[in-house]
Design a protein around this nucleic acid. Structure first.
Length: 275
DNA sequence: ACGAGGTCCTGCGAGC
DNA sequence: TGCTCGCAGGACCTCG
């Protein structure tokens, strides 16, 4: 489930492999993932156009075209953007949603088994509107403990839910919210505005260091995530809470609890270590 | 302002 | 073995 570290990994690799290259053909195989565009419009916007750069915003891969249009790919659960080297047969081409052929050879494609991911075409003003409704990037230097404190202060909701709210904080999903709260020793169900300053600082530190460590490991592959070379990420081995419900806490040995009480999402935490 | 619940989608694991 | 059924999960929407 690509969150910030996984999408960052995808975007960096795509940027190094695709920036400056030109798309010759675009094929939309499963139009149901398209948002704010049609298959015809996407084909027209991409074909014959060069790629200026690829970056990440929140959990979206942003492909910036030389025409000042943007293709946003949001992989959600099972989406992946795979680059096929020229001359090599495409790895499994099943589940391909959109396929982009490059004019000098090679191709890249969006693949998504469940198709809960989306592909959106935006012009510059659409992109500005997207930025405006997404919150702070946690790896931006402007995201400080004080800033986190401001973001949490406004909400009575569970702190975990606020961390995952894209309008507040960009790119944090269920895996990293669980990990950061575990690391900081904070009960995920605590009212966001009730955190003490030292708890907010610990949460900030945990969140930022975990996101960096996961990027370093090229993200978490719990099941489906693959990078553009179709490789799994290495951070799953370092997870201390997510996916470990019932296993002993690495700090105190108490079996980790698992609940769905917060916003219907799987939450794993330690009764003894997280307050 | 907030919470609850439905929707999108398909592979997978459990149960019979 | 072969079927059905519920679940997973982020974003977005409606309803109360």
């Amino acid at each position: 489930m690509p969150e910030l570290p996984e999408v960052e990994t995808i975007a960096r690799e795509l940027d190094s492999r695709l920036a400056g290259r030109t798309i010759s053909e675009t094929h939309v195989l499963r139009p149901d993932v398209l948002r704010e565009t049609t298959a015809g419009a996407l084909v027209n916007a991409c074909s014959g156009v060069s790629i200026r750069s690829v970056h990440r915003r929140a959990k979206s891969v942003v492909i910036e075209l030389a025409t000042d249009h943007f293709v946003l790919i949001q992989p959600r659960f099972t989406g992946a953007v795979i680059v096929d080297a020229p001359g090599l047969p495409a790895a499994d081409s099943a589940y391909t949603v959109v396929h982009w052929q490059l004019s000098e050879g090679g191709a890249f494609r969006y693949r998504d088994v469940r198709r809960l991911g989306t592909v959106t075409l935006l012009d510059a003003s659409g992109m500005a509107r997207y930025h405006a409704r997404i919150g702070d990037e946690p790896l931006d230097p402007a995201f400080t403990p004080d800033r986190l404190s401001v973001l949490l202060r406004g909400s009575r909701s569970a702190v975990k839910k606020v961390l995952m709210d894209q309008r507040v904080l960009a790119g944090v999903g269920n895996i990293y919210a669980n990990e950061a709260l575990f690391e900081a020793g904070i009960d995920p169900s605590r009212e966001a505005r009730g955190l003490m300053p030292e708890e907010t600082s610990a949460l900030h530190e945990a969140l930022v260091s975990i996101l960096h460590a996961s990027i370093q490991a090229r993200g978490t592959t719990f099941r489906d995530y693959r990078d553009p070379s179709n490789q799994a990420g290495g951070y799953a081995a370092q997870l201390r809470a997510y996916g470990r419900g019932g296993e002993p806490c690495v700090r105190c040995g108490t079996p980790l609890a698992e609940t769905h009480a917060i916003d219907g999402r799987t939450t794993v935490f330690c009764f003894r270590c997280q307050h």
